[in-house]
Amino acid sequence: MAIRKIWFTCYDHERHVGGQKDTYRHAEAVAALGWDASIVHRERTSPLSWFDSQVPVTTWTQAQAQLDEANDVIVLPEDQSHRCAQYPGWKVIFNKNVCAGFSTMGREPVMLHPCQRKDVLATLVMSDHNKQQLEYACPGHLTMRVLPAIDRSFAGLDADAERDVVLWVPKQENTARTIKHLVECRGRSLAYEPAGVQWRVLEGIEQRHVAELMAKTIVLLFVSAEEGLGRTPIEALEAGAAVAGFRNGTLHEVAPPDGLFEWGDCRGVSEFIITCIKAQRTNRAWFGELQTRGLMCAERFSRPRYLDAVLSAWQAIDAAHAARERDRP
């Protein structure tokens, strides 16, 4: 029998965590493709309020009352995967960040990784980098790459608009602060003061205001090498911003190579940011070519490709479920 219903578990909190939004968007896509899907919160009965959603929401108590253990699937985030034995029936792990998933297991030896459990049908990941790590750890386990859901409101913003913001994502914060001060000190040392340029942290900003901020952004600074696949750099590229960071991890799967440097090369990243700031006044043609390359990279995450990846993944999971059910004693 095909999968009857898919239950996507989420936390109750309202913090602006990208993984929560990815789960909601993925559930919407699964429903649009023909499966019955719901978001399951522990207690809350309404969807998260910081973005729009079109997917039914229920509580865990209500879901348990309806659960068909043989034919339903529960989807868990990576930081709950170590608790999958506490959930009945079939499971899928939505691993948006392999480092976060492994870190929740602590320092003690783990006798059975979630991906090695027979009741875990598959793991969904969002980058080739994370897929390779899990396939190395658990050979033979079904690991399917899907894509992050991109907010299309960033597309079509005026690429030639006046830009005066360097925006940074608050992860690996010590490194980001180091680059910020390198840029500012270098500018003062060379009597080049990036007058009017603001450094803003992408934190605590309502979703509806993020596009406005991206439209003013010269460079997005993204230095975390532990992301599963950051959605924010893709949205920045769609908005006409450059992306700067380290090519290690997953960022090289997203952004043009112009702004990517070896891990720890804060000087290289800083020089790229300074070049982009100067180009706003002295070399808009060069910056325009950089924007074009960025838009080409962002196109790899278009809505049709997003839906194709979701469809392929769940068709494979459906087949795995049918095979496991046939083999059950």
Rank of each mutant, 00 (worst) to 15 (best):
I6K: 02
W7I: 02
F8Y: 14
T9Q: 07
D12A: 06
D12N: 07
H13Q: 13
R15M: 09
V17R: 08
G18V: 05
G19Q: 00
G19S: 03
Q20C: 04
A29Y: 00
A29S: 09
V30Q: 03
A31T: 01
A32Y: 05
S38Q: 13
R44W: 13
T45V: 12
L48I: 12
S49R: 14
S53H: 05
P56L: 01
P56C: 03
V57P: 00
Q64T: 07
E69C: 11
L76S: 11
P77N: 04
E78G: 15
C84S: 14
W90E: 03
W90V: 01
C99W: 11
M105V: 10
M105P: 06
V110L: 06
V110W: 01
V110S: 04
M111Y: 10
D119Y: 01
D119H: 05
L121K: 06
A122N: 04
L124K: 05
V125S: 01
V125M: 02
S127Y: 04
H129Y: 15
N130E: 07
K131S: 13
L134M: 11
E135Q: 15
Y136L: 13
G140D: 12
T143Y: 08
V146Q: 07
D151Q: 07
E162I: 06
R163G: 06
V165K: 06
V166Y: 08
V169L: 13
T178E: 15
H181K: 09
H181W: 15
R200G: 05
R200K: 15
L202E: 03
L202A: 13
I205Y: 06
I205A: 07
E206V: 08
H209M: 13
E212K: 15
A215H: 09
T217Y: 03
A225E: 10
E226C: 07
G228P: 00
A242G: 10
A242E: 13
F246M: 03
V254Q: 14
V254W: 12
P256M: 05
G259C: 05
E262C: 09
V269F: 09
I273M: 12
N283C: 06
N283F: 03
R284Y: 09
W286I: 02
F287I: 03
E289C: 07
A298Q: 00
R300T: 00
S302F: 00
P304A: 06
V310C: 10
I317E: 02
